[in-house]
Design a protein around this nucleic acid. Sequence first.
RNA 1: GGGCGAUUAGCUCAGUUGGUAGAGCAACCCCUUUACACGGGGAAGGUCACAGGUUCGAGUCCUGUAUCGCCCACCA
Length: 694
Amino acid sequence: MNDKFLKPYNPQETESRIYDLWEKSGYFNPDNLPGASSRTPFTIVMPPPNANGDLHAGHALFITLEDIMIRYKRMRGYRALWLPGADHAGFETQVVYEKKLEKEGRSRFGMDPQDLYKEIYDFTLANKKIMEGQVRSLGASCDWSREKFTLDPEVVEKTQKTFVKMFDDGLVYRGKRAINWCSKHQTSLSEVETESVEEATPFYYFKYGPFEIGTVRPETKFGDKYVVMHPDDKRYAEYAHGQKLTVEWINGPIEATVIKDAAVDMEFGTGVMTITPWHSQVDFEIAQRHNLDIEQIIDWRGKLLPIAGEFAGINIKEARPKIAEKLKEKGLLIRIDENYKNVVKRCYKCSTIIEPQIKDQWFVRMEPLAKMALGAVDKGDLKFIPDNYEKIFRYWMSNPIDWNISRQIVWGIPIPAWFKGDEIKASVESPGEGWSRDPDTFDTWFSSGQWPLMMTGFPESRDFGTYYPTDVMETGHDLIFKWIPRMVIFGLYLTGKSPFHTVYLHGLVNDAQGKKMSKSKGNVINPLVLTDKYGSDALRMTLIVGNTPGTDLALREDKVKGYKNFANKVWNIARFILPLENSGDLKQELVDEFNTTARDITSDMEGYRFHLAAEKIYHYIWHRLADEIIEESKAETKGEIKEEYKATLHYLLENSLKLLHPFMPFVTEEIWSELRNLPTSKLTNLLMVESWPQ
RNA sequence: GGGCGAUUAGCUCAGUUGGUAGAGCAACCCCUUUACACGGGGAAGGUCACAGGUUCGAGUCCUGUAUCGCCCACCA
């Protein structure tokens, strides 16, 4: 027996060596597995980590979960393929990079877009490399030979072709609509990139001619020359649609026009409102219905335009109280309701209040696509774990809002759209002389939504035939709206098949007190610090045991320590058993008992109950094999082992290592090589390709 | 305003189809016994949020209540 067994298990000296062994074996690529062509494929596409920072605890969790599934299926005889990649993460990365620029006293505004792109590209590639090393350190048995990046030229071109196809199919349109504008980041954002927070906002009642109007946004009211009420509202029956009135307003008298529209809620406020179509989707729709003038009041930086007269150039935040004050001086302020609660949208990155602005953008028509997705769920082609997420998915798909895919940032895939006067064309290459390209880039989810297709070699390749549709999509439950629907939609639209049959959603990894980790709270736990200290196997077990799908997990260091002790326990079991001669009969009742446990664990693995499987193998190894069976095997004479136990102990150790391997791959593989007395240069007979106990 | 989830031992959490409550850590007692002190043995600890209901039987199913958490939402 190797001398290293005389010392406690040392993950630091073991893990990277074992990982190299696996990687060199070539078995991460399932085409190299013994009998590959006759194996049934099992495929997982790794959610590509954003290549803009270190791996966090959430990454560690998904890498562990997916690696468990892949290792299990590989041992079960499947052609197990796990496809790794990295995401350029458009807006996310640009925000990270802008912060970096800010620290250096620089700004992206005024920079040459080409230079900026090049800088972010270098930054991202450097991060990507570091990140890949971190994924390896957690033991991920993914096929690096098939790795892709969302900005690989081939991926970019395919992504653009999808847009062109959707344009031809009438599924994308260029249109004016109220978009979510972040005045700090100078870009539009999709619905999922904003967060709505309820806030107490003063609600002002102003006198507007003969009417009383309510608003939370006096600063938008300069252009309000339409006063709208419900056609059935008897209180205002004397006023006719289209009637003109002269009213005294902020900067003097204006001519107001009465508009009757059913969009007005008679119950709310006074039942009368003035509209600001450029800065509200509801108002914009009313304006379109009646063919009204639409005028911008607030510029792209959040300052008032010349229409505001004396207030022009003032930031809207400062302008609001000033304008209210002026209206009060003019005797037009009736009262203020200070207790009004209003929902305010903010940029999910910088919390800047989102300003609705009307802008020409590309939108994806969601309704027909959402119907396809619902159909897949109805047919049972798409299942969710835990299953309550099906309801959430259905709800979202039943109320789809057209998706704005235009972003005014350089870091992304260019939208292949071309303009010449009023003409619009969609094509990857320039249509010719005189056409200018849309300067915008795609929302990052437009490319990551196609990720399962890209990773499997859509539209035609040997891989695509073999590995698409994939099997499981494992990701965080926070992506139930952001990512999952988009992948399902693109998969169904482009191939007619859902890109996966099962969606496994894990919860958030919180701090030891169960509180959400955040940089501002300073409670972020770096998983790599834990693996350095206790080993990756220990962290993996910590993240799995007791962690049910969809439920958040509190990451406690003492738990990690506990599983480091377990790794050492396994090590010492090996130390006890390995020197014993492996011969003679098996004790059938112990074998039967083990097999019953193994079947139970297998059933948990098949049912995605990894938290139970992990706990059961842990319990068996420590409290049954070590505490009881090994103790029983000791003879009266010191140092002697009962003859009839020897072969059985070998049997139980070997098979326990197999059951434990998906969870704790490093320590089990290390013991296995000693068990098989393998020279480290020999790459066959690795535990990772052994058969799962039946 | 809707929706979802949670409420089980001091702490963090398990408990698949209903059958007299489990783990890890912490705390208590004993043991340096020749695989392991990153260890072993033992003891202790819960009216499973509350109130009803279904059932021979409910932590597990149904209804309601309370508290906490998360998500969604273009009523000015």
